[in-house]
């Protein structure tokens, strides 16, 4: 899962960089070369890549929390095995991305601490609840599907370690997406109750997945450092349109209805109406849709989503409860678990 396109990257001041070196660096980027950690790079690039990789790593490990909660409740042994493997993959993605960030100059312990004290963020989409098995299916279909689209474009980036990690991660994301697709298909070809559960979960996840790609682009996005330096390679709105073009007709084929919804503070749908704007524009070949509620997006990002506190609380508890293990490992001592 995951992808970090909604990380707020504000990069400026390259003014104090050596203009000669900066020009060479940008020429290498334009030539499609990859930048390696030992190569010269603007300080703002190093900082931006660290921020991006760290945000992505945070998203991987927080994203696994709602899914991890469902392992014990999976409906069959095969689904349980698959979900366990998926969660293991996501934590592995976090490990790899933290490692890249460590190489860019921040310790892992500091990153884990900054995450649980709210100094750094993770992807907004993980602040929504997963109350039923239908949500687990939707997360793997829509969110891992969105993550693959995004991470494929990130694999065309310019920072060598990040690009190689994206390639490796995407192999595993393909499994997450396919098993998600299988779960959604199973539910939608199942009983009336299963189809209803699936529709309700779809209603909860459709708009968060459209917002997954981040807010609308600024008019000059292509000239700003993240794209100028190939830290990302496709505009948010373009990714979003490709996502809708792929998933809207698939959802309709499955018999799902696409709704505009209102939700209560816990993220549960309180009312819904069909999206009247949803249709294929024959001229452009694009599916038109009602734009998401961006106020909601910013509200959730600022910490007021349904699950922000819950996610951080669990991560912080895990960090604190795991302390004796890390202590034992780091010091090689015979520290015992705290008495219950």
């Amino acid at each position: 899962m995951s992808g970090s396109s909604n990380v707020g990257m504000h990069i400026d001041h390259v003014a104090d960089e050596d203009p000669q070196k900066l020009a060479e660096f940008e020429a290498r980027i334009d030539a499609g070369e990859l930048i390696e950690p030992d190569d010269w790079m603007p300080a703002a690039y190093r900082k931006g890549m660290l921020k991006m990789a760290e945000h992505h790593a945070n998203s991987e490990i927080i994203g696994a929390l709602p899914e991890g909660e469902w392992i014990t409740r999976a409906p069959s042994l095969r689904r349980k095995l698959a979900l366990t493997a998926k969660v293991q993959d996501e934590i592995g993605h976090g490990q790899m991305l933290y490692r890249i960030s460590q190489d860019l100059g921040k310790t892992r312990d500091q990153m884990l601490r900054d995450l649980i004290t709210g100094r750094t963020k993770y992807h907004n989409v993980f602040n929504y609840p997963a109350p039923t098995w239908g949500d687990i299916a939707m997360i793997q279909w829509l969110i891992d599907g969105a993550a693959i689209m995004n991470q494929k474009t990130l694999a065309d980036g310019a920072f060598g370690p990040y690009v190689r990690t994206m390639r490796r991660i995407n192999m595993e994301e393909a499994f997450h997406f396919k098993s998600g697709e299988d779960m959604v298909l199973t539910l939608m070809t199942g009983t009336q109750r299963q189809r209803e559960m699936c529709q309700e979960a779809f209603d909860r996840w459709w708009y968060p997945s459209i917002m997954f790609f981040g807010p609308p682009d600024k008019p000059n996005s292509e000239q700003l450092p993240p794209m100028r330096w190939r830290m990302k390679t496709e505009l948010n709105d373009s990714l979003r349109q490709r996502f809708v073009n792929r998933f809207a007709p698939a959802a309709l084929d499955l018999g799902l209805k696409i709704h505009i919804v209102t939700k209560d503070p816990d993220g549960i749908v309180t009312s819904k109406t069909p999206d009247k704007n949803l249709r294929l524009n024959e001229q452009t070949g694009n599916w038109q849709f009602t734009a998401p509620d961006w106020d909601e997006f910013y509200r959730v990002i600022r910490g007021h989503g349904p699950c922000n506190r819950k996610r951080l609380a669990l991560r912080r508890l895990s960090y604190e409860q795991g302390r004796w293990v890390r202590k034992a490992v780091l010091k090689g001592s015979t520290a015992l678990p705290p008495a219950a």
Partner: peptide
């Protein structure tokens, strides 16, 4: 287990344990 984990209260603010270092 899950029900308990659903209702953990978030402790806010800085950690009172020292930085641990990496492997």
């Amino acid at each position: 287990m899950s029900k308990i984990r659903e209702h953990i209260t978030l402790v806010e603010g800085d950690l009172d344990t020292p930085i641990e270092g990496d492997l």
